[in-house]
Design a protein around this nucleic acid. Structure first.
Lengths: 250, 250
DNA sequence: ATTGTAGTTGAATTAGGATTCAATTCACAG
DNA sequence: CTGTGAATTGAATCCTAATTCAACTACAAT
């Protein structure tokens, strides 16, 4: 099959300086490194972090395993690089300008839902790797903190001066953020069948979440016309009658 | 050191019927099996699913590795058994009776937060294993679906007949549930430092989440006096003035 | 006591991938 | 055309557990 080469005999040689090239010298090297990252990304998207093998990456890249080690010390490293590039990419996704306080909530939520729909595997990996690799968790935490703080500021300035403390608005930002992450994750990563049936498009998902978020903050429904796919939620305006009879207790 | 036994020579013997005892016959066997499960649980709590080794479990139980295989075919199996017992245990946690519609939200949330505070490692494993083991995810989904449906019914009956469809109340239940899971997970499993600083006790966490939940549903604040550790949230009642000036744009 | 069976042990073996590295090929400067 | 060093290959090797199982022990019934 393969053209035979004289068998390589391993001799314990002088201890080599042992390293790999984090910064390949030539442009050709750059390209190959990039090729490997793209392959790693595809593998991550397909099988997730825990099932990923060096062999998979090499095969996906159409390259020998050894080459992988020429550019990266291990899977953890490529993975972190790939995911952190991915996060940069997400951060750079253009957001339409928000016109009002509903859209301030809705637009980022929609962008986020779209990202999940498009890259469920990578989003899954974010969770897996943040759970296993402390250095990556640190990055994740930092981004999360930055985002939550921005949201918190935005919340705070919509309430009378001093009515809502820094602390509470930050807690609220984290809470609502968790809701968004959690639900979207459940839909696009775990494909929860109830939710998939109920919420057909990222837009629908984003409308639902934004409506809940909006009500929690402002204690009123989003302005009329904002909910195009989930219009019935507007009906939910009228709050609480006296408690309806309990249907049944199993 | 060890008393020497004649070295065991392995001979390829006739293919054994090969099995283990899922149901140990004697009581002694039962006890040992239980012992191993307890050990496995401790290991899971300490290091999580992915770092767990058969050796760890045997050592923790003070038993030879071989014994493990007498009672379980592999780690996946014990893990699923341990976690599903754990879920049963959680389901059986006694809940104080809820007196009003705030407590209906608050009490289960508090119970849940307490569970996380007490078993962060196992809660982490629930996520890990649900993500990796389809059979376990199925169980998780089922419990989740049951719970969300119960919540959804409870939500629906508080609104005028027909105002809130089955579908929407179920979506809302999942959303708010995700918020609770997500935030609590962030605090007790990942020890997010912002949140740990902000929310000192499970009660505080539960109050925050319940207040948000309550506002999202009823568009008003929880009854006075309900928020004992997070009282300032009551102040947040007054909704929105005209938008305060944006502080600054980075 | 004796024997039969379930329970137990831990060294030997397997398994599955990660890593290494001598040999080879490639690109290009001289 | 070379000569030289970077890039590439993939079989050999190393590692880290998982898994097996012949021998041994404990206990219960006879």
């Amino acid at each position: 099959m393969t053209t035979s080469r004289p068998t390589k005999i391993r001799k314990r040689a002088a201890p080599a300086p042992a390293d790999f090239a984090p910064e390949p010298v030539s442009t050709r090297g750059q390209k190959r490194r990039e090729l490997l990252k793209v392959a790693a990304r595809a593998v991550l998207e397909r099988v997730g972090y825990h099932a990923m093998k060096v062999t998979d990456v090499a095969t996906e890249a159409g390259v020998a395993v050894g080459l992988f080690y020429h550019y990266f010390p291990d899977l953890k490293t490529v993975t972190c690089e790939v995911l952190s590039d991915f996060l940069d990419e997400l951060a750079e996704t253009p957001h339409p300008e928000a016109e009002d306080r509903f859209d301030v909530i809705f637009i980022p939520t929609l962008v986020w839902a779209n990202a999940y729909e498009e890259h469920p595997g990578l989003m899954r990996c974010l969770v897996q790797v943040a759970d296993e690799v402390p250095e990556f968790r640190a990055l994740w935490n930092k981004l999360n903190a930055t985002w939550s703080r921005r949201v918190a500021k935005n919340i705070a300035r919509r309430f009378p001066e001093g009515q809502l403390s820094e602390d509470f608005s930050l807690s609220i930002a984290y809470s609502l953020g968790s809701m968004v992450d959690g639900l979207i994750n459940e839909i696009y990563v775990h494909r929860n069948s109830d939710l998939c049936k109920l919420l057909k498009s990222p837009r629908e998902v984003a409308e639902l979440l934004s409506a809940i978020w909006y009500r929690a903050l402002y204690m009123e429904n989003p302005p009329a016309g904002k909910l195009t796919l989930t219009a019935p939620l507007h009906e939910m305006g009228a709050p609480i009658p006296t408690l309806a009879p309990k249907i049944k207790r199993k």
